[in-house]
Design a protein around this nucleic acid. Structure first.
Length: 922
RNA sequence: GGGCCUGUAGAUCAGGGGUAGAUCGUUGCGUUCGCAACGCAAAGGCCGCGGGUUCGAAUCCCGCCGGGUCCA
């Protein structure tokens, strides 16, 4: 497939030969005619360990600098890295590759790249192979993808395959690699709807880089087929390279693991904290880890079974047992994990991710908790915050992380506390559950483990450990986590976009004439009740702002516009009638200005509240959602703790101050790249708008990309009244507020509530809290007093009733109607009476229909009197139901006329029971 | 965005349509020179809030509020 794609002039001119790897069957290019294998594991294994491939050792920053400056010298512009949280993307949370920085708008050709060609070193986070981190010797959660990109179009080609390979070759050569040992393995690439030929760059058994020539896009029925999908050539074709910075450093050092090459200082510190001798300096240990990395390099080590295979191989090769090997390796591997994860967290938190249980925040928490677990295994007592701080201090190249240190420390400390709470709660729960299965003498089933993890966050390893303490076995398969994942696999959500005829973009008058309320336009198309105009003042739903309403008027017809949507720039007016308008008509449009104004006020207020929240709560505040309506708006923000009442008031005050300053609301269209450069990704608080030009809105200090409609000056917003906060998710706070008229109404409503409440209690609003408190306390006291009196009354009643009791076969039976008594009272009387073992009480009241209570003393019960059974029968008579225990039962109904009848029935039943007893026993 | 769990005395929790419980803590009494320990007793509950079903709801159903947790 695509064989021609790899016939590069560069290869031919430089004496490369194309070979087929006998192991994997893939083609590759090499200068050395003697080379047989493609150079990629598992066909070959690592040869660079102990034999560095470059002429000198590099660390992270010197290698990064060497790379970037090489490409600068070769005509590339150095571009700053992007955050690890992909704020400019709607489809991914974390930045997973350098090309992700330029998707989707640059790669699609809509927006020009910040420079062309460019070079970058982009920190990336991938959490796919978490289990392999620390164990394989090469896996990292966080790595920097160094890259050079060239964005070509048919009319403007920067460079393509030959130059790309040449640059790579030259770089390797400058670094001192033996070019004869370099192989370029053909490996077509596909992903994310794009594809293209690609070569993997292999040295010493290590894949150092991948050079992708992205020139295909996925098209249904396309002419080129790769892996079952069809593709077509793109107008733009992109050089997408990825050079692993950490791998380059590793290759330059030839150390046993990548971890020792990349963050030796942190590893050393952690080893000390864990009380492990720094074993990698010991040649014997170094040998173990080298062997491990070599074997791990050529096999899949996911899952316990594969891991065991790896251990076995390593153990055999150095002549020891798996058990002994584990003892040596596990603590060191765990240190590697902590080193890697804390570095990952430094990036995540440094770039402003707030741990939470949704979205990117969830991923941060996942890593954070995993780190804590590992630290516990190592018995490192140092707070995690300190370790992350240590990482950050090791990044002189990321000064922005240091600025956030205080916040990061607070977040991590809070998270640590939260996790400790979860574990403590969990441990108790597991103990209880374990006990349950111990009693049943069963293993704890898998379903229970999943339940504990899924709903309570207790890792199965901890469950197993705790259960072991209670001598309960646990069923824990390797595939545990994937089983949990399966439980959550969800149905695909399909959203069909309405098919539209090919129409020109609607001219957006609402941007051009923001204050205007009426307009004239021509009808371009009518689809049932949907009308498309050449231009419109109607704002379509978007950015959390609902659409405008209003009317469209032709010569003879009027239609109410009930909804407005924008699909690919074509604005569709949905009306309440499906006739009247036709193509070519000139219509007058009039928008419901009150509605629009309310939306504009709330929208502009949202920007102000967002900014106020940021100034009060901290820089980590990020909008995750917003919704406006005519009478209120809500704003969701990332924040790691609850907003306090004091902060709430402060935000409200600052927001209103901005209003009172009557700041202008400045709107301008800007080049996307320019805007990003000037304001950063905080622009994209409300989402990422498409297009080369984006609409930038500035209110005070708040600058955002925003497509909404706004008032011209903040003073027009009127008052902003914060209504409440809500924690919609852990790590996400929602603020609800009203602006303008709606705010005044809210304030009035609240006053009204207060006044009415105060009036009800005949006090002034100021006295309300004290008075309500007093009333509540008094109510509680009286409730208690009432209960005490009822008990007393019951005793008195019983004393009075004892003499009325009928003697039925030796039992004292009383049947009585106590008018107006509630159930509680009846129960008290009945229980009091039947403290006497021989007593049976049948009580009735006419409160709210009929209430019945029957009780039987201990002896009476032995004689066969069942209060529950009797009540059931009695209740039927009065048109209800009832039941209870043999000693005490309640019932009732609706027919008060039949109380006497029911009581007679009760007495009769007691008699019958006793008679039948005496006959059967005689 | 989707799912699951959860809210009962100051704390930890049981109960799960029919008189609200246990343990610890608190207070008092006993024992003691005193303390601890022990024994006895008591106080302490809008069973998160609001609706619904029912003769009857802490318990079942719905909504809201709060807390926890897993996944995308």
């Amino acid at each position: 497939m695509l064989d021609d794609e790899y016939q590069l002039e560069y290869f031919k001119e430089n004496g490369f030969v194309r070979k087929k790897c006998p192991a994997c069957g893939k083609n590759f290019w090499t200068r050395d005619t003697g080379t047989k294998m493609c150079g990629d594991p598992p066909c070959v294994s690592y040869s660079f360990i102990g034999a560095p491939v470059f002429k000198k050792e590099y660390d992270i920053s010197s290698m990064r600098e060497a790379y970037l400056s090489f490409f600068e010298r070769n005509g590339h512009t150095r571009v700053n890295r992007y955050p690890v949280i992909a704020r400019w993307r709607e489809d991914i949370y974390l930045t997973i590759a350098s090309i992700a920085d330029f998707q989707p708008f640059v790669t699609s050709g809509l927006v020009p790249p910040p420079a062309n060609p460019l070079t970058i070193s982009q920190p990336c986070i991938r959490l796919d192979d978490l289990d392999a981190v620390g164990r394989s010797g090469r896996h990292l959660t966080t790595f920097e993808m160094m890259a050079h990109h060239a964005f070509n179009s048919r009319s403007n080609e920067i460079y393509w395959k030959d130059r790309t390979v040449e640059l790579c070759d030259t770089l390797l050569s400058e670094l001192g690699a033996d070019l004869n040992a370099v192989t370029y393995k053909e490996s077509p690439w596909a992903g994310g709807g794009n594809a293209g030929p690609s070569v993997e760059v292999l040295v010493g058994g290590l894949e150092l880089a991948t050079l992708v020539f992205m020139d295909l896009k996925q098209v249904k029925g396309g002419s080129i087929e790769i892996k079952g999908e069809t593709y077509e050539k793109m107008e733009n074709y992109i050089v997408d390279t990825g050079y692993g910075l950490e791998r380059f450093v590793w290759a330059s050092r030839g150390s046993p693991t990548i971890y020792d090459a990349v963050f030796p200082g942190v590893v050393k510190e952690l080893m000390d904290l864990a009380g492990i001798e720094h074993s990698i300096e010991n040649p014997e240990y170094a040998n173990i880890f080298s062997q491990n990395a070599r074997f791990a390099g050529v096999m899949d080590i996911s899952g316990q079974a594969n891991l065991f295979q790896l251990r076995k191989k390593v153990a055999d090769s150095i002549g020891t047992t798996v058990e002994k090997l584990q003892k040596i390796m596990v603590p060191v591997e765990t240190v590697y994990v902590v080193a890697d994860h804390s570095r990952c967290l430094a990036f995540m938190l440094g770039d402003g991710i707030i741990p939470s249980n949704v979205k990117a925040g969830y991923l941060a928490r996942l890593v954070l908790r995993r780190t804590l677990r590992m630290m516990k295994d190592l018995e490192i007592r140092e707070p995690l915050a300190e370790i992350i701080e240590m990482q950050i201090r090791n990044f002189p190249e990321y000064p922005e992380f240091r600025e956030r240190l205080d916040t990061i420390r607070e977040i991590v400390t809070l998270e640590e506390e939260k996790y400790a709470d979860t574990i403590e709660r969990g441990t108790k729960l597991v103990r209880k559950t374990a006990l349950h299965f111990k009693e049943k003498k069963e293993k704890m089933p898998l379903a229970e483990l999943i339940q504990l993890y899924d709903t309570h966050g207790i890792p199965p390893e901890i469950t197993r450990e705790v259960a072991k303490d209670s001598n309960v076995e646990v069923e824990l398969p390797d595939t545990f986590y994937s089983l949990v994942a399966k439980k959550h696999s969800k149905a695909e959500e399909e959203e069909q976009e309405a098919l539209l005829p090919d129409l020109p973009q609607t001219r957006k008058l609402y941007y051009e004439y923001p204050g205007q309320r009426e307009f004239e336009a021509q009808v371009i198309d009518v689809i049932e009740n949907r009308i498309i105009l050449d231009s419109t003042l109607f704002y379509p739903e978007g950015g959390g702002q609902p659409s405008d309403h209003g009317t469209l008027l032709a010569d003879d017809y009027v239609a109410d516009v009930v909804n407005v949507r924008s699909i690919n720039g074509i604005i569709i007016h949905e009306t309440d009638s499906d006739f009247g308008f036709k193509k070519g008509d000139v219509v007058k449009g009039k928008i419901d200005w009150e509605r629009r104004m309310a939306h504009m006020r709330h929208h502009t207020a949202t920007h102000i509240v967002n900014e106020a929240a940021k100034s009060v709560l901290g820089k980590h505040i990020w909008q995750t959602g917003a919704q406006k309506s005519t009478d209120r708006a809500r704003l969701d923000l990332t924040h790691y703790k609850r907003i306090t009442d004091e902060e709430f008031r402060e935000i409200e005050l600052r927001a209103n101050k901005e209003v009172m300053e009557n700041l202008p609301v400045i709107i301008k269209w800007m080049d996307r790249v320019e805007a990003e450069k000037q304001y950063g990704f905080t622009l994209y608080q409300g989402g990422v708008p498409p297009g080369k030009e984006i609409r930038i809105l500035r209110v005070g200090n708040d600058v955002e990309a925003c497509g909404g409609t706004h008032v011209l000056n903040t003073g027009l917003i009127g008052p902003i009244k914060l209504l409440r906060t809500e924690r919609i998710q852990d790590g996400v706070e929602r603020i609800e507020f009203s602006a303008g008229e709606a705010a005044v109404k809210r304030i009035q409503e609240r006053d009204e509530l207060l006044n009415r409440s105060a009036e009800a209690l005949r006090v002034s609003p100021e006295q309300l809290p004290d008075t309500v408190n007093r009333f509540f306390e008094e109510w509680k006291d009286q409730k208690k007093e009432n209960e005490r009196l009822k008990a007393e009354l019951a005793e008195a009643r019983v004393r009075a009733m004892v003499s009325d009791a009928a003697n039925v076969n030796g039992l004292k039976v009383i049947s009585k109607k106590i008018p107006h008594a509630d159930v509680e009272e009846l129960i008290k009387v009945a229980t009091e009476f039947s403290k006497n073992d021989d007593a049976v009480a049948l009580l009735a009241s006419d409160l709210g229909g009929v209430k019945l209570v029957v009780s039987a003393g201990a002896h009476a019960q032995k004689m066969g009197v069942n209060a529950g059974a009797i009540v059931r029968e009695m209740s039927k008579i009065v048109g209800g139901g009832g039941g209870g225990k043999p000693g005490i039962a309640q019932g009732g109904g609706t027919d008060a006329q039949k109380i006497e009848e029911a009581l007679e029935m009760g007495v009769k039943m007691v008699k019958e029971k006793l008679n039948s007893l005496s006959t059967s026993f005689n």
